[in-house]
Design a protein around this nucleic acid. Sequence first.
DNA 1: CATGAATGAGGCTTCATTCAT
DNA 2: CATGAATGAAGCCTCATTCAT
Lengths: 203, 203, 203, 203
Amino acid sequence: MVKISNRRERKKRDSKNAIIEAAVTLFAQKGYNDTSIAEIMSEADLGLGTFYNYFQSKEEILKHFLAEITLNINQSYTKLLQEPRPAAEVLSEMFLLTGRILDQNRFVLPLFLSAAARGAGGKPHAPSPGRLTFKSIFLSIIQDGQAKGEFRSDIPAEVITEMFHAVFQAASFSSLDIGFMENIEYKLKIILTGLAAGGRQPG
Amino acid sequence: MVKISNRRERKKRDSKNAIIEAAVTLFAQKGYNDTSIAEIMSEADLGLGTFYNYFQSKEEILKHFLAEITLNINQSYTKLLQEPRPAAEVLSEMFLLTGRILDQNRFVLPLFLSAAARGAGGKPHAPSPGRLTFKSIFLSIIQDGQAKGEFRSDIPAEVITEMFHAVFQAASFSSLDIGFMENIEYKLKIILTGLAAGGRQPG
Amino acid sequence: MVKISNRRERKKRDSKNAIIEAAVTLFAQKGYNDTSIAEIMSEADLGLGTFYNYFQSKEEILKHFLAEITLNINQSYTKLLQEPRPAAEVLSEMFLLTGRILDQNRFVLPLFLSAAARGAGGKPHAPSPGRLTFKSIFLSIIQDGQAKGEFRSDIPAEVITEMFHAVFQAASFSSLDIGFMENIEYKLKIILTGLAAGGRQPG
Amino acid sequence: MVKISNRRERKKRDSKNAIIEAAVTLFAQKGYNDTSIAEIMSEADLGLGTFYNYFQSKEEILKHFLAEITLNINQSYTKLLQEPRPAAEVLSEMFLLTGRILDQNRFVLPLFLSAAARGAGGKPHAPSPGRLTFKSIFLSIIQDGQAKGEFRSDIPAEVITEMFHAVFQAASFSSLDIGFMENIEYKLKIILTGLAAGGRQPG
DNA sequence: CATGAATGAGGCTTCATTCAT
DNA sequence: CATGAATGAAGCCTCATTCAT
C-alpha cells in the first residue's frame, strides 16, 4: 500500500543524481553560462526533456546548489558556536569548514561573482539565493574578536570579512599544484598574523 | 540640419576609441557575456557593421583590453624596478599602481575568472590573453623579499602572489561603500603585517 | 491513511468520466490548445499515462465531445419532428434546445472555428468530426418554412442557417452580463421577425 | 545627405511586406496559433532571424494587424458620421464598410474569439489590442436609432450589437460558395427587417 | 488497467557575423 | 570606411506520446 514500487523510486533518484553530477562537472569545467542543458543531459546520458522533470528551469538547478551549500554552512555554524572559545580559533575552524564545503562545489564562486558584477540593476530573476549568510557569520566573529582585543581594530570588520571571501575565490581558481585546502590554510596563516592585535608593520 | 548632431563630434576621437569606450562602459555595467555588439555600437553611436572594421570578433576586443592592461602594468614595472628599494616598498607601490589600473577596468576580473573557470579544456578560441604577466612580476618581488629576509618564508611565494590577486578581485565586487582604492589599502595593510619576517601567530 | 483520500471516491464514476469532466472544465477555461494532457489528468486526479488507456490522442477526446453533442442533437431532432407544426415553432424549439446543449459545452465553438479557419488544407489528422449535422437539420426546417410560405424566400436557406450558427457563437463569447440562454432568445426574436414572410424593410 | 540610399530602403520595405503578406496568408489558412514563425519566414522566402528585424515577437505582428484594422475602421467612422442621416442607413453603410475591411483580414476573427474565450484570466501578455472600438460605434448608432423610434426597443442595444459582430464571424468562416460581402448583405437584410420598429412577430 | 519517468521534435527568441551598398 | 539588413546556429523550454513496471 505504501511503497508503490521501489525500482521506480530508485531510478528516479538515480536520474536526479546523474543530472546533478553532470551539472556540477560541467559548471566546474565551463561555468554556468557556458554550459547548456543539452550538454548536461548528454553528460548525464538522459534525454533533453528529462531535465525538466527534475528542475523547472536552468536557474532552478543553480538555486538547488546554493540552497544546499547554505544549509550545510548554517548547520555547521550552529554547532561551532555552541561553546565559547577565542575568536581566532572559532574563525579558523569556521574558515576551514567553509573551505571544505566550497571545495566540493567550486563552480559556485563564479556565480556569486557574476551576480555581484551585475549589481543591483541586474535581471529580475537573477540567481539571488537569499544571500549566502556566511558573510554575516564571519562578520560577527571578527567583530567579537575586535571587541575582545584579540584583533586589531584599525581595519573595518567588513573589509576583513571580504578578505576571507577573497581567499576562497582565489583558491577556487588557483592554478597552483597544491590542493585547495592547503592553499587556503597558507592564506589563513597570513591573515591571522596580520590581524593579531599587537602586530604593526614597521612602516 | 539640426538632427544629424551627435554623429558629428565623433570625428575627433575616431571610431575605434568610441567603440572601446562604449565597450568598457557596458562590460562594466553588464558583464562581457550579457553585452551584445549591437548594444556596444549603439552606445558608440555607430553602425553595427562598423565594429568589424576594427575588431575581428567579439573576443578580439577583449584581447585588446587585456593587452592594454598588460602593457600598462609592464611599463610601470620597468620604471619601478629602476632603483633598488625594500621589497615591501616596491610591493606596495606595485600593488597600488595595479589597483589604480584595475579600478578603471573593473570588468576584466570576471573575465579572468571565467577564463580560469573554463580551465585548459575551454573553447578553441578561448580568450587566452598571453597570460597577464603581473603574476610573474609580483612573484619575483616577493621571492626577492623572501631572499632578503624581509618576508617570512614559510609560505610559498606563489601563494602570496595569489593572495594579492584575490584582493583585487574582492575589491572589484565589493558592496561596501568605501572606494576601491581605500578597500585595497586596508587589505594591503593586513597582508604586509602578515608577511613581515618576525611575525608568527601565537597558535 | 487519511491522505490517500481523493483517489478513493473516483471508482464510482470510472476514470473515463473523470477525464472527460476534467477536459470539459479546462477546455472551457483555457481552450483546447492551451490545455495540456498533464493538466487534464491532474485535474482528473489520475496518472498522466492513464489518459492513453481511454483516448488514442489528444484529438481523440475532442472527437468524443463532438460526437456526443451531435448524438444529443440528433436525438432531439428526431423527437421534435415527430408531429407536424409550424416551421417557426419547430425552429424555435430546435434552436433553444441546441442552445441548451451548447451552453454546457461552450468550449467547442472555438474548435469549430479554428477547424473551419484551417479550411480544407489543414493537418492530416485534422479534427474533422464528420460535420456536425445540425446545419442540415436547421437547413431542412428553414427550407420547409420557405416552401410553406411561412418564411421569406429572398434569402437563401443556407445563409439563414449560418445566421443561427452565428448567434450561438456570439453568445458563447459574449461579455454581456446576461445569461447564454437569455442572450440567444433575444437574437432569436430578431431573426424570426426578420424572417417572417410579409416582412420587407422600407428601403 | 538626406537620402542615405534608396535601394536599401526599398528592399527593407519589400521584406517587411513579404513578411506581412506571408503572415496574413498563413494566419488565414491555419490560424495564428498553428502558424510558426519558421513557416512565415519560409513562405516569405527569408531567413528565420530576419523576422525579428521587423517585429519584436510573434505577438507583435498580431498587434500590427489589429492596430491597422482599428485605424481603418475609426477613420471611416469619422467620415460616416459627418452628416446626419437615418440610423438604418448609417448602420448599413458602417456595416458594409466594416465588412469590406474584415474581408481582407479574415484571419483576425479567430484571434478575437480565442482571446475572448480565454476570458479575463488569460495570459498576462494576451493580445488584447486596446479593444477594437467598432463595438462602441455600432452600439451608439443603434441606441440612436432606438431613441429616434426607428428601431424596436424591446431588445437591448448591446445584444443587437453582438448580433452584427456575429454576422461577421459567421461570414468569415462560411463554407457557402457565395462571397463574403454577398453573405453579409443577406444577413443585414434579415436583421434590419427584424429591427424595424413596427415589426413584431406573430407569436 | 494505472502509472509517471523518459523522450525529442518543435516552437520562440537572441546574437555574432557577413556582405552588398 | 560606414552601414544595417540578412542569416542561421544555438539556447531554453513545452508537451504529446511511449513504455516498462
